[in-house]
Amino acid sequence: MIEIEGITKRYGETTVVRDVSLTIAPRTVTVIVGTSGSGKTTLLRMINRLVEPTSGTIRLDGEDNRSLPGYELRRRIGYAIQGHGLFPHRTVAQNIATVPTLLGWDRARIDAKVAELLTLFQLDPAAFGPRYPHELSGGQQQRVGVARALAAEPKVLLMDEPFGALDPIIRAKAQDDLLAIQKHFETTIVLVTHDMEEAFHLADRIAVMDKGEVVQYTTPAEMLVKPATGFVESLIGAGERPFRLLAIETVATAVEPGTAEGKAISSAVSQREALSTLLWSGRKALPVVGPDGVLIGKVSLDGLAQRAAGRS
């Protein structure tokens, strides 16, 4: 649980973050979006005290984050900085091992962790471990940066545009991996992004920042249906709303009784994907199979159209 209470940050006369209060539930993914310069990074960095707030408090699991020295606080909180921030003079393996080494883990445990994380991010430990950051592509560097943030299995993970440099395919894969890791380690993630698609895909809750203020903090579905301000609406993109609505739910919740002709689709894919398949195949409905491959009903164009209609 991260409780942000009345946090303000001023640099001289300019207020960069203004009176922000957010409560972030444990084991959830919170995504912060907003235009460039709206104070996202600053807010994130006040959580691990890389930036000291001008006023307000932040509590982690009920404990004020100023109750221990900054460096100790930061060893408990994973942080993937904007850009990758890898240490150019250390190998990939050494980079990932930084925090475990600071924490005094033994060699074998560190090596195992490094190998596990590299494998998780589709980087062969034998090939990539001994390389230096400048010998990796931008996307590979970024994945190593995220792996480094995860190395000590932190309960809280702060990520500042972690997937910015990835191509769409690897990006989607990295996002799914992140969600899997988050489920597995029960991590609380706060992630900053510019990509609304990514925000809706990852978020349990989205916080929209505008000129230093949080203008809306709610679930993706709620935000789509009831955008708090014109700014939020434009951020979502008016033309995208029905599709985003379909994208955040799986076919499982849209299954109707009965059956249909054609190739069945899985109940685990998003409703948006089902819509796309329907449109592309020119059918009115498709059979749906559950995780075990058993037929459980159908999904129809009409049904989806109803779900995509704004519920306002």
């Binding site: 960095r45 691990n48 890389l50 460096y71 100790e72 606080l73 930061r74 060893r75 408990r76 942080y79 900085i81 850009g83 990758h84 921030g85 890898l86 240490f87 150019p88 930084t98 925090v99 600071l102 940066g145 480094r148 943030a149």
Partner: peptide, 11 residues
């Protein structure tokens, strides 16, 4: 960035 990451990581 290297300095920033070093601080962010808890050095």
């Amino acid at each position: 960035e290297a300095n920033d990451a070093a601080r962010g990581i808890g050095m």
